[in-house]
């Protein structure tokens, strides 16, 4: 059976995706900030702080964009 036919399971699949989406954005944001701190400016923790905040924004934005594409 194609998994999208049952609306309950399709919705479950969509919901499971959102968690990973937010986590991945947070990890990438923090990682980029850490890279900037360590290899570019040696700017203490501030790069990572800014990166984590950006990552949180990006995660929410990804989740929002995904919810916009929700199947009817």
């Amino acid at each position: 059976m194609p998994p999208s036919t049952d609306p309950f399971y399709a919705g479950l699949g969509q919901a499971v995706r959102i968690g990973t989406e937010m986590l991945a954005a947070l990890i990438v944001g923090g990682g980029l900030g850490w890279l900037v701190d360590t290899y570019l400016f040696s700017s203490g923790p501030w790069g990572m702080v800014a990166g984590l905040i950006l990552g949180a924004f990006a995660g929410v934005r990804n989740a929002y964009r995904m919810a916009q594409r929700w199947p009817k």
Binding site: R17, T20, E21, L23, A24, A25, I27, V28, G29, L32, G51, L54, G55, F57, A58, G59, R61, N62
Partner: peptide
């Protein structure tokens, strides 16, 4: 910057989701 991070998060979330 926000869009850059959200773009770079795409391959990571794709890989981690299936693996996890």
């Amino acid at each position: 910057p926000i869009e850059l991070v959200s773009q770079l998060a795409r391959p990571l979330s794709l890989a981690v989701r299936l693996f996890a």
